[in-house]
Amino acid sequence: MTAPDAAGPTAVPDGETARLVRRPAVASSVVALAAGAVAVSLVADAPLQREILRLALVGVVAFGIGGRLARHGETALSALGALVALGGGLVVLVAVGQAATQPPQFIDRIELLPGIVGLWVLSAALAPVRFRWSRALIDVGTGFVFLGVLVTGVTQGAGTVALLLAALGAILARDAAENAVSVGGQIGVQRGARTVRAELAHAGVAASVGVGAIAVALGVARLGVDGLPFGALVALVVGSAVLVLGSDR
């Protein structure tokens, strides 16, 4: 067995060329999946939802790791990886089925379902199923996670802080996943290509910006924005968004 690491690239036998291996970078991929999982678990806070989510997460992680292994150079390992990915996919399907049927209330189901599907698609993007599809799959996957957050916001299934943190998780998941693809495409994940420091720095700065923004938003909310007419608040938020949009970058 020449592979030191399940998710790692092919070890290079002596005398052969070290090839450039293009896959989403590992550290950012892990950060992205973790952020996505946190986002979903924050909005799905009922005990039954959490239970289903745990099952789904096991499946999603197995799917991701199995997918990585399946693209491994060695036949035995890739066969094992394909099996693990298949098993993980089945577990996710079971979880999806449970999420669609078991929670007694309809809103509990629609809070959870997009999140599970989104995480699955995200792990497919980062495995990757196919490197060229990664960015599209990331958009779809994190879009589903964010959809779950919006639905929860409408159903008022979670508190304001939890909702904000969940939205932050979805945004961070997309940023980290995009970064994983970008680093993995330019630097690669072959042995010897060290990228962890840059990836973690990127994710850390993005997270701190989000945390700061949440603090400001909550602070403003505490100031008694409730007293303002709702329409004025809307106008403010829309106005600021348009301002920022106008400065194209």
Binding site: L150, L163, A241
Partner: peptide, 19 residues
């Protein structure tokens, strides 16, 4: 839902982030 407006504000902050 005011909380969704706050999510809008959070996403707005990320719109400004590259600048």
């Amino acid at each position: 839902r005011p909380s969704l407006l706050l999510i809008g504000a959070l996403a707005g902050a990320y719109t400004a982030y590259p600048r």
